[in-house]
């Protein structure tokens, strides 16, 4: 028994070591630095308590970043899941070229967020504007990325284009895991297609929704790469009577704060992001879990 315990400890040790060094200890340091005035280099660090946090909630750019990150996440959760669920119904149906379609929908996910951002930036800033000019369509003549009101939606659309194929695969797997007999029985009983989808399919794959909602929620909350290359935080808009960047999500706000040598302040923002993400994700998972059914 005793030897067993030693073996267990030895087997777990490398993982615990790596996890501690990469996650736990940096996390502890992060918490500590968020309560100091460290600039990233200076050896003399002063403890300032919660001053960094207090400053955050009076700075318009941070409040705005927080609000649009929540909005962007909400839009994304709806858009990505609606689109990917629709796609999964299509590619599990009786149409021809199902496998080809599955691969096709999945491919955008394989393109890195940086590259993808630049490609779509070109499409919105150059291609669509050129089309608008040659066809004299007024709405297209100035880039959608230059309108503070639409830019979050554009980012969500690009993110959906990228991410829907991946979530679709999760739904496809869930749909295929549902016994065909259930659907057939319902069909024999006279249930039409929408009824079957809403009353049988969706309740039966509730666990897939839990996972998919969780994934879209966390990735949207932490969105950075596509944000950087597609909009770079622009254009500017006015909030609380201060000009700020209209599409600067939280992660990018943290990054821009850190690169301005305000490490402690950036760290405090990161802690806020972490807490918000944990709270929202736990609520979402708890709510979804209630709807899951065991087969």
């Amino acid at each position: 028994m005793r030897r067993h315990r030693l073996v267990n400890v030895l087997f777990v040790a490398p993982c615990v070591f790596a996890f501690a060094m990469n996650i736990i200890i940096p996390f502890g340091f992060g918490l500590y630095y968020s309560m100091t005035d460290w600039n990233g280099v200076s050896p003399d660090i002063h403890f300032v308590g919660l001053a960094n946090f207090a400053g955050l909630f009076s700075s318009p750019d941070f409040i705005y970043s927080f609000i649009i990150t929540v909005a962007y996440t909400a839009i994304n959760i709806v858009l990505v899941n609606a689109v990917s669920f629709g796609l999964s119904l299509i590619v599990t149906g009786r149409i021809r070229g199902r496998n080809f379609l599955r691969a096709g929908f999945f491919i955008p996910y394989l393109i890195g967020g940086i590259v993808l951002g630049y490609i779509w930036q070109f499409i919105f800033n150059n291609a669509l504007v050129a089309v608008g000019k040659s066809l004299s369509i007024a709405a297209l003549q100035s880039s959608f990325l230059s309108k503070p009101g639409t830019v979050i939606w554009i980012m969500s659309i690009v993110n959906t284009w990228q991410y829907a194929g991946y979530i679709m695969l999760i739904y496809v797997a869930a749909i295929q895991g549902i016994p065909a007999s259930l659907m057939e029985a319902a069909e024999v009983d006279g249930a039409n297609y929408p009824t079957r989808v809403f009353k049988i399919l969706m309740p039966m794959m509730a666990n897939a929704f839990t996972i998919s909602l969780f994934l879209t929620l966390t990735t949207s909350f932490k969105q950075f790469d596509m944000n950087l290359t597609l909009t770079n935080g622009g254009p500017a808009t006015r909030f609380m009577d201060t000009p700020i960047k209209a599409s600067q999500l939280l992660a990018m706000n943290i990054f821009n704060t850190a690169t301005a040598n305000r490490m402690a302040e950036a760290q405090a923002k990161a802690v806020v992001l972490f807490v918000a993400l944990v709270v929202v994700a736990l609520l979402q998972v708890a709510a979804n879990k209630k709807k899951e059914v065991e087969l």
């Binding site: 750019d61 622009g234 254009p235 500017a236 808009t237 006015r238 000009p243 700020i244 960047k245 821009n256 704060t257 690169t259 301005a260 040598n261 305000r262």
Partner: peptide, 15 residues
Amino acid sequence: PDGAGQNVFGPIFDL
């Protein structure tokens, strides 16, 4: 100060 151009003046000039 660091960041004044990018984070403060930048949006003002863009606006």
